[in-house]
């Protein structure tokens, strides 16, 4: 464990908590892409199947349980509890365009052709594009509530911090995982446009709401 990965995990945890709080306190999931949240739930389910077979540390197992629980709690809030506020009309990204290529790629490029490893690889590829429906929805509605933009900033920062962690681990431990690194870079690059708008939001006139041009 290093400080960059710890900061990344905390940023990830913060993002998930911000999202849960936003939906719970505003009793609405307006502006939130249910499709992205489904992708994240699939991602963590496919990645954490080793929860019971491969004990790394108490921290690792605890975080896996938290991320899984929060992912499904978010799905429950969106599709059951506050279903009436779910914005079907703007959450229209064709997720099959994400699922099919990532499944094919995980079968073709992986570390080991075993079920668990292919599922892990699939989760890495899927996570890198899982935010697209959300970013697409924000660009379609033309704006995001400030709390949603904080959620996206924390979520985007998590994998950016992981990239620093991988640089550190390469020099400190000679460890590198090309699949995670390439997917992590893609994932972070997808947020660049958003990061720019989020950071310059303060200097743009009447930027009360986050507006992302289509």
């Amino acid at each position: 464990m290093n400080v960059f990965r710890l900061a990344g995990d905390i940023s990830h945890l913060l993002a998930i908590i911000i999202l849960l709080l936003k939906i719970w306190t505003s009793r609405s999931c307006a502006g939130i892409s249910g499709k992205s949240q489904v992708m994240f739930a699939i991602t963590y389910t496919a990645r954490y199947l080793d929860l019971f077979t491969n004990f790394i540390s108490l921290y690792n197992s605890t975080m896996k349980i938290i991320f899984l629980g929060a992912a499904y709690a978010t799905l429950y809030l969106i599709y059951v509890r506050f279903k009436a506020t779910y914005d079907h009309n703007h959450d229209t990204f064709r997720v099959e365009f994400l699922l099919i290529p990532t499944v094919i790629l995980s079968v073709l490029i992986n570390h080991d052709f075993s079920p668990l490893e292919i599922l892990w690889t699939f989760s890495i590829y899927l996570e890198s594009v899982a935010i697209l429906p959300q970013l697409f929805m924000v660009s379609k509605t033309g704006e995001a509530e400030s709390i949603t933009s904080h959620y996206l900033f924390a979520l985007g920062s998590y994998r950016a911090l992981y990239i620093i962690n991988w640089v550190y681990r390469y020099y400190a431990e000679g460890f590198y995982d090309l699949i995670a690194i390439v997917a992590g870079v893609v994932q972070t690059v997808l947020y660049c446009d958003f990061f720019y708008l989020y950071i310059t939001k303060g200097s743009r006139a009447n930027a009360t709401e986050m507006s992302i041009e289509a």
Binding site: D9, H12, N54, F67, I109, H111, E117, Y162, L178
Partner: peptide, 10 residues
């Protein structure tokens, strides 16, 4: 062909 490895990251 890519090294096998135990995944210790989240």
């Amino acid at each position: 062909w890519l090294p096998k490895r135990k995944h210790d990251e989240l």
